[in-house]
């Protein structure tokens, strides 16, 4: 964006750095053209990019079941949901670009494995019940995180979160509806639902990030208002809301340590296997290679379409890219 040469002369005021700190302290949003510390910009790019990549890669595990959805109704819903994930990725890339990085660079960083996406999408979807479990648990956990992020300090990111949260609600409800249907169905359907819950429960807790005392980014991110709730706070919230839902379904959460703690007013839960989590983050989950290879292949297979579209635009007179290039 062009900066106008017409700027109002300023009198002696706070330095840009002081102004930034004042805005953060006052709970105000930082907007793209405000001065910001380089580390804030880098952190924001890393976090928004990772979030965007997660939305895009997140289409794969569920997309796997579109052709095999058990009814036309379920199929239409799943298509709409996966379509939303693509849209959410685009909102987030657009927010990320306000920080001075291009869409192509972000794509490249993902494809080279230099930026990450959520560990949760490196698990396979083995049965139809997984689509239910993902909507209920994975989207449930994501919503808990994203609701907190609507209050994040960077304006474009916060606005993208508001839009996404609004659209996300149906994702969780359709997932719960699938689980409800299976839980009330035949013995085989019930078993399928329980099996999906067994496999998705722990990864859903882990996807909210390492415990606070191990999280390298939490302290600075809290100071800058990027994070407004810690990983452990969000995780506890998610567990508290999900336990009664599992009870309603008549399904068992795979955690023998799960117990209501009267004193804390929260559910206690067992130790998360962080070694397993870090293995997946490091690239050794069940589907890491497959997910990234699929993404890169889709990008490369689409090259001729992008080239054709540019060639078409160049031929148009006064329209499209040709007009402004």
């Amino acid at each position: 964006m062009e900066q106008s040469t017409f700027t109002t002369a300023t009198t002696d005021g706070p330095t840009p750095a002081e102004r930034f700190d004042q805005l953060i302290a006052a709970g105000e949003k930082i907007e793209p053209r405000d001065w910001m510390p380089e580390a804030y910009r880098r952190t924001m790019i890393r976090q928004i990019a990772q979030h965007a990549h997660s939305e895009v890669i997140g289409q794969q595990p569920e997309g796997n079941w579109i052709t095999r959805a058990p009814s036309l109704r379920r199929k239409a819903i799943l298509v709409a949901k996966v379509q939303d994930e693509a849209g959410h990725g685009l909102y987030l890339y657009s927010a990320c670009e306000t920080l001075g990085i291009s869409r192509d660079e972000l794509n490249e960083l993902l494809h080279q494995g230099r930026q990450k996406y959520s560990s949760i999408f490196n698990y396979p979807t083995l049965s139809w019940a997984d689509v239910g479990a993902i909507g209920w648990l994975v989207d449930g956990a994501a919503i808990a995180n994203q609701v907190a992020l609507t209050r994040t300090s960077y304006g474009p990111y916060a606005r993208a979160m508001v839009r996404i949260c609004k659209e996300e609600s149906f994702h969780q409800r359709q997932g719960f509806e699938i689980m409800m249907t299976l839980a009330r169905g035949s013995e085989a359907q019930r078993d399928m639902a329980q099996d999906a819950l067994n496999r998705w429960w722990w990864p859903s807790l882990a996807m909210l990030g390492p415990p606070d005392e191990q999280s390298t980014h939490t302290e600075q991110s809290m100071q800058w208002g990027i994070k407004v709730e810690t990983n452990d706070e969000i995780r506890q919230k998610f567990v508290d809301q999900t336990v009664p839902q599992a009870q309603f379904l008549g399904l068992t959460l795979p955690d023998p340590a799960l117990a209501w703690n009267e004193e804390r007013g929260h559910w206690d839960f067992g130790e998360i296997d962080w070694d397993a989590f870090w293995e997946v983050v490091r690239g050794n989950g069940p589907c890491n290679r497959e997910r990234l290879a699929h993404k890169v292949k889709a990008w490369e297979d689409g090259a001729w379409v992008r080239e054709a579209a540019l060639a078409h635009a160049a031929k148009q007179d006064g329209r499209g890219l040709a007009a402004t290039a």
């Binding site: 239409a76 409800r173 719960f176 409800m180």
Partner: peptide
């Protein structure tokens, strides 16, 4: 209609979804 949360009937006792 299925793009909206109200399309899905979730019993009240399940709580907020």
């Amino acid at each position: 209609p299925y793009r909206h949360p109200t399309f899905y009937t979730i019993p009240d006792e399940v709580g907020h979804l």
